[in-house]
C-alpha cells in the first residue's frame, strides 16, 4: 500500500466557527492505482489532498505514505518526502511566471540537487514527449491553458515520483485539452506509481481505476452517492 489514511479528521478553526472539512476518513491506495476523488464543491477533497501531501496536519488520525506515518514528521522531513515521492498538479497550473516551460520542468530536479545539464536533458526529453518541443522556451504567459497544464504535468512527473496528487487538473480546460492532460497522467500511472485526483468532472471517471466519493467531509459508498 502506497497511501493509507486511518480515521483522518481535519477541523478548521475552533468553537462556533469550526469547520469539520474532513471527518473520520479512512482509505488506502495501492501502487499502480489511479484513484479519482469525486464530490461536490466544499466536500473536503482539497483538504484531504493537502493532508496526504503533508502540507497540513490532521486534527486526528494517521496517514501513511509508503509505510511512513507522516503526521509525526518535521517540516524538513515532509519537504524531503514531497520532493522524493510526490508530484503535484493544480487547477490553476501554478507555473513559475518568470521561468520558461523548460526551466519550470527543470525546477524540481534542481531542488533535488540534480546537475543543471542532466536536469535540462531530462526536462527537454519529457517536454518533447508531451508534444511541447517547440514551446519549451516560452514563458507561461505565452502558452495556452492546455500547454501550461501539460508543462505542469511534466513538472510533476519529471522526478519520477511514486505519487501524483492532482487537484481539479481539468477544471480550467476544455474537454479536449482535459482529456489530453488526463491521458498524460494515465500513461504515468502503473509500474508502482499511483495517482490521486480530486475532481468533480465526470469525464475524468473513465481514466480512473477506482472512484472515492466524498460528501460533507466523509467518504461514501458509491451506492450512497448520487
Amino acid at each position: 500500500m502506497l497511501i493509507e489514511a486511518k480515521g483522518v479528521t481535519k477541523v478548521y478553526g475552533s468553537g462556533r466557527t469550526a469547520v469539520r472539512a474532513v471527518n473520520g476518513v479512512s482509505f488506502s491506495i495501492d501502487r499502480g492505482e489511479l484513484v479519482l476523488l469525486m464530490g461536490p464543491s466544499g466536500s473536503g477533497k482539497t483538504t484531504l489532498l493537502t493532508l496526504i501531501s503533508g502540507l497540513l496536519k490532521p486534527t486526528s488520525g494517521e496517514i501513511y505514505i509508503d509505510g511512513v506515518e507522516i503526521t509525526e514528521l518535521s517540516q524538513k522531513e515532509l519537504a524531503r518526502l514531497r520532493l522524493e515521492k510526490i508530484g503535484f498538479i493544480f487547477q490553476h497550473f501554478n507555473l513559475l511566471s518568470a521561468l520558461t516551460a523548460l526551466e519550470n520542468v527543470m525546477m524540481p530536479l534542481i531542488i533535488k540537487g540534480v546537475s543543471k545539464e542532466e536536469a535540462r536533458t531530462r526536462a527537454e526529453e519529457l517536454l518533447a514527449a508531451f508534444g511541447l518541443a517547440g514551446r519549451m522556451h516560452h514563458l507561461p504567459e505565452d502558452l495556452s491553458g492546455g500547454e501550461q497544464q501539460r508543462v505542469a504535468v511534466a513538472r510533476a512527473v519529471v522526478t519520477e515520483p511514486e505519487i501524483i496528487i492532482a487537484d481539479e487538473p481539468t477544471a480550467n480546460l476544455d474537454s479536449k485539452k482535459g482529456r489530453e492532460v488526463m491521458e498524460l497522467i494515465r500513461e504515468r500511472v502503473g509500474q508502482g506509481k499511483s495517482a490521486i485526483i480530486a475532481s468533480h468532472d465526470p469525464r475524468v471517471k473513465s481514466f480512473a481505476d477506482r472512484v472515492l466519493y466524498m460528501e460533507d467531509g466523509m467518504l461514501k459508498a458509491p451506492e450512497e452517492y448520487q
Binding site: 502540507l55 524531503r80 503535484f88 501554478n94 518568470a98
Partner: peptide, 18 residues
C-alpha cells in the same frame, strides 16, 4: 509579488536553504 510562487516551490519540496 511572487509569494504564491514561493509557496509552490515549498510545496514541491524546496527547503529553507533553497
Amino acid at each position: 509579488e511572487k509569494i504564491k510562487e514561493y509557496a509552490i516551490l515549498k510545496a514541491i519540496g524546496a527547503g529553507e536553504g533553497f
